[in-house]
Structure formats: C-alpha cells, structure tokens
Design a protein around this nucleic acid. Structure first.
Lengths: 343, 343
DNA sequence: CCCATTCACTTTTACGCTTAAGCTCGGGAC
DNA sequence: GTCCCGAGCTTAAGCGTAAAAGTGAATGGG
C-alpha cells in the first residue's frame, strides 16, 4: 500500500531550512557544516528548522559542488559467498560507516573484462576511493586509472607494479598453526595442504616448515599432502595420514579440517584425545561451532584497514601484511601418551 | 607508487566533448543519451570525441538534474555472513547491474536504531529504491519514509502494514523435503527442527505435517524435536532420534544435517544406506560438497526479484512467496529393507 | 568624528547535466 | 519570390550545495 507507486515528494532544501529559520540558505549551510561566523542564536534556530523539516543534505548536489561524494567503491572479484570478500566487505563497511562514508559495491565476476566494467561504473560515479577484494589470494590485472582515484587491493596483488595492497600474513599463520601443535607436544604432524601452487598454500606450508625447522623436528615429506580445500579432500588425505600415525593434522582450511574430523571418527579416533586437528580460516559459523582450533584470517581487519588508509590520504607501502592468529579451541591437545602442559 | 597521494585530474565534461566535436554540450548530451534530432554524422563525431577524451557522465550532476541517480540502496539487517543477506545481495546486485543500476550497501546492525540510520543514509543519497534484507525471517520495524521512495522487504515482513515483502515459501519447502523422504519410502521420519517459535521453523514443520497427512502417515510427536540450528544440536538430536529408529532425518538446516551425519557416523550407521538425511538451505560450499540432499532457499531469486520489481514501478502485492525446491543428492535413498524406486 | 575593521549575514556564482525553448537555414509549396 | 516548416542545432534555465564576494550596521581606534 505504501512504498511503491507513490508520488515522490520533494525533499526540503537548504533554502527551505533557511526560510523557516529566517535566514538565507547560505547561512543555513554554514551552520550545518559547522563553519564559524554565525551567531549562536541563529545557529540554534537553523538547527531547529532543519530538524523540524527533516532536512537531509542532497548528496548529489554536494558531490557536484565539492567533488567528493562520500562514497567508497568496493569491487568484489567473486560472488561474495566465501569469507574473504564477505569479511572484507563487512570490515570496509564498518569503517566507512564510522567515517561517514557509504559503500558502493560492485563486482568483477560473471562477465569478461569485469574489472574494467566495475571500474567504469565506480569512476563514473566519482567514488572517493576504490577497494578491490578477491576470494583467493592472487594476482589481478586492473585497468589503468587516469584520474588519480586512490585504489587499494585487498587479498590480491597487482600484476607488475600498481596500487598498494594488503594481504594476510599466511606464512606467519602457517607458522603459528604449526607452533600450536608443536607446543602441545606433537611431533608426527600431517599437513593437509590446499591446492598446490596457490600463493596461500605455498606460504602456509612454508610457515609450517619454518616452525618445524625452528623446533628441530624433521619434516616427513610423505606427510605433506596437497588437496583442493574441500571437505572431501580433507577426509581422503586424513585417512591416509592417520594411517601413517599422525597425531596432529594441520589442515589447509576449516572445511578440510571437518573432513579430517570425519575421517578420524570413521577410524574410531577421538578428537582431540587421539588426534589433534588444526583448521585454518576460522570460517564463521563453522569453526567455532565445531570447536575447531584454527587460524583466523584478518579479512575484516583488512577491509577496515583499507578504508582507513585510503581516506587517510598518506602514501602507502606497496605491500602490507596483517597477522593471522591462532584461535585455540578444543580440537587440539597433547598427543596420546604425552602429559599435557609441556609447552 | 600509483593510486594514492596523486593529484586528482579533472574529468572531461560534456562541454569538452562538444567542443572537440565542434558542437555544443547540449548536442553532445543528446547524442550520448540516444535522443533523436541529431545528424548521423554529427553523432559519430560526438561519439568519437567522447571516446577520445574518455568521457564519463558525472553521475552527481545527472542525479541532481534528473532526481534519479541509478542507485539502489540495500539495507542488511545482519552482518552479511549467512546465506540470506549474502544471497539476496548477490541477486540484487546481478539484477541491478543488468539494469544499469548500482547497489549502495548499508546495514542496520551494530547500532541502536540501525534501520533509521541506514534509511537516513540512503534517503540522503536519493537512492531510487530501497531493499531491506535480513538473515532470519522475522518482522522488522522500519522508519516511516515520507518521500515515497519505493521499498521492498526481503525475507522479512513489516510489523503491521507497510512496504510489500517477498519471502521464501518455507511451508512449501518443508512439504517438499518431507515428500522427498516419503517418496523414497521412509515412514519413520525424525524432525530436527530449528529454534522453536521462529517463523521459518514453524512453517517448515507445518509443511512436514501437511505432507505426512497427505501421505496418510501419522506423526510420532516424540520424533519432532526442536534445536538451535547449529551443528551441535543436530548431532545431539540425531543421536536420540536414531536411537528411536528413525530411518529418515529432516533437518532444520544444513549444519544440523552435518551434525546428524556426524551422529550417524558415530553410531556406526552409513548414509544413505542405513539412514537418509535431508538438510535445508542448500548452504553454498557446504551442502553440495557434503553430498547433502537439501532444500534450496531462493535468496538470490528474491534479491533479483526485489530489484526488478522495484524498478518495474508497478504496485506489488503485500506478500509474495518464492518457491523452495528440493536439491536431490546422495544423502537420501530408500530406507533399509525397502527396495528403491517405489516412489 | 571619521575611517577601518569586524561581524553577521546575503547575494551570487559555479559545479555538470538535462531539457525546454529559441534560432537558423535550406528547401518545397504556391 | 514569399511563406512556412522542420531538421538540426544553440542558448539558457535550473537542480541543491559550497564558498567567494558583497553589504550594511555596529564597533573601535586615533
């Protein structure tokens, strides 16, 4: 009944506010923008008038006039279903809101030349800055931006040189995950890595190796296996690694960890009593519910950081890493036969 | 190096395009907006000039002039982590893009009076329409909108009367899920419902009861249990229902279904050989990977439908239901002892 | 007592676009 | 030749805001 098909009433303007307050529109503008040179009493009348009329600045006019429209463009490289784009969006959104900006979300998937189209859309709307977020960390080829709109890449990096980027410190995350198992006393650690060759996979495994080296534990190469980041592959790999006597499993992500837990259950092993499992990602609504120890990826932090940095106006280093921290949960304890607390 | 801290060059305007093409800015406007009354040769020159200068219409000016800015506001009731807001956003986005509109995403969570703030932001930006999407189907109290901006609620409904809304046909979904088990020959069906009292829960259970009634199977009230939509509760309830001899489990969502599958594995039962499990939601990256038969919730459809309907300009019925269809996967087969194919 | 300065405004302009209205010119009707 | 018409432009008027420039009265210093 309401809402659609109704005549669109025109909103009150600064002139209207001024008229009601008995001053000019410009005076009202000064008051509402907090500029000096207006008598306190007049200012009060203007504010009251604005409140009474329900005045809202027309942002199109404001943008036209001041060449800043308070909009940050967010380009999503993939359908926002997975934690990376969703988390980045949530963080960017929170920060934008805190800074009085809005977030115009667009995407670069589906069509060929998606990034170009997305940039066209955003630049046509004169956004104040652009954040690009993709799902799996990777290189992206972006169109050149001629007008100097600030750009920042989240979870991806430019092909050669280009806009600055912010990435999760995956190597640090892999290191921290491995350290968590090592600190609990595990020595036979099986790695259920993700897709071989992907940046995140490589870095996480490198972090694992560094932690092992630092702990003076030799890596059994037969226990470093690659999968596809899906539950089924975690289950398959875990079956094999458990048969090899692994007491701790380092999984490429939380879904593989759930697969591993399934394999453990099927093998009659209890978690964490017989086998400890580390996930990765801290996938919302999944890892916590499953009581899965994991590594939190800083997607929200990156989103917040991106917006804050872009609006800060200062030049940024080409690459920034945000840390990935262990989230301790019940799926990790000391291995069987080792008393707990020997960290 | 590029991207931030750079001087923002001014963009070419219609005047610039016109000047380069040897006509006035107005003529250029006519050409680029595809209006008649311009000689083909002139039109070609204008288009070439626009391309050469890399002209982009200034949408702020356009919005100011024509009071339509090509932006649709999306208000999210919750952090977009769960399928409802994410799917709605994806659908709304796809449709908006197809219609040449942009999507301004804002949210109503976190702060008190979130919906009011969100609406203020969107109305201040003169969005052409507003879509409100929440996570769990529920009533929402929205601020009154005075200027006639079209509004549509997705997955929620107004407190008394208000904007039109679109909802998943949950009762139909519950009915379809039950039918799927019944058609496979199951008679001892356990229901692991979600949170008691929630609209979706109630409707789904009602659909189940209707399907049972239609099939002439009496409902064993001890086998209709309520949980909390989380994995753990699915596991707990399933243990109990399996002990009661259920051959088919109808779960409140996919996560409860995974919990149920865990319980089945722990009880030494094979899925689907010993027990069939129906999820609900078709949660992306979860149900498909787990091979879980489920019911697809039409979030994307609702998002698309919302945008299309809002821009259609025609009045909408107060409530529209979009259907929830069964997604057949390997977790459902005939119960033990019953030959398959007696549907 | 007069000019300069300040205060507290008002008037005006410009932002880039759309679009109504006006203008010009060539050509066909008579 | 004159008239008219319409095709094909140009001119100009705003949209609501920000901010520069202008105004007039009050104040103050010399």
């Amino acid at each position: 009944m309401e809402g659609s098909g109704q005549i669109r009433r025109s909103r009150p303007t600064l002139q209207d506010v001024g008229r009601l307050a008995g001053v000019s529109g410009a005076a009202a503008s000064y008051v509402l923008n907090g500029r000096p040179g207006v008598a306190p009493d007049t200012a009060r009348r203007v504010r009251e008038a604005a409140a009474e009329l329900g005045y809202r600045p027309n942002s199109a006019a404001r943008a036209l006039r001041s060449d800043r429209n308070g909009i940050i463009g967010l380009v999503l490289g993939e359908v926002p279903r997975t934690p990376p784009p969703v988390g980045t969006m949530a963080g960017a959104h929170a920060e934008a809101q805190a800074l009085g900006q809005s977030l115009l979300v667009t995407n670069a998937y589906g069509t060929r030349g998606g990034f170009r189209l997305a940039f066209d859309e955003l630049l046509g709307r004169q956004v104040d800055a652009i954040v690009v977020a993709v799902s799996g960390t990777r290189r992206v080829a972006l169109p050149e931006v001629r007008d100097g709109t600030p750009i920042l890449l989240v979870n991806c990096f430019p092909v050669v040189s280009g806009p600055p980027c912010v990435l999760p410190d995956e190597q640090g995350g892999g290191h921290a995950a491995a350290r968590n198992l090592l600190d609990h006393g595990h020595r036979r650690i099986g790695v259920l890595a993700g897709v071989r060759g992907m940046w995140a996979t490589t870095e996480r495994v490198a972090g694992f190796r560094r932690a092992m080296r630092e702990a003076g534990v030799e890596v059994d190469e037969g226990m470093v296996r690659y999968g596809d980041y899906r539950l089924g592959s975690g289950r398959t790999l875990a079956r094999d690694l458990l048969a090899k006597g692994a007491t701790g499993l380092l999984c490429g992500n939380d879904r593989m960890a759930l697969g591993a837990r399934l394999a453990a259950a099927e093998a009659g092993l209890r978690v964490p009593h017989d086998v400890s499992i580390m996930g990765y990602d801290d996938e919302p609504e999944l890892a916590a519910e499953a009581g899965l120890a994991t590594v939190r990826l800083p997607y929200e932090d990156m989103g917040r950081w991106a917006v804050r940095s872009l609006l800060g106006g200062e030049p940024l280093p080409p690459r920034t890493l945000l840390s990935c921290d262990v989230v301790a949960r019940g799926s990790v304890s000391a291995p069987p036969g080792i008393p707990p607390g020997r960290a």
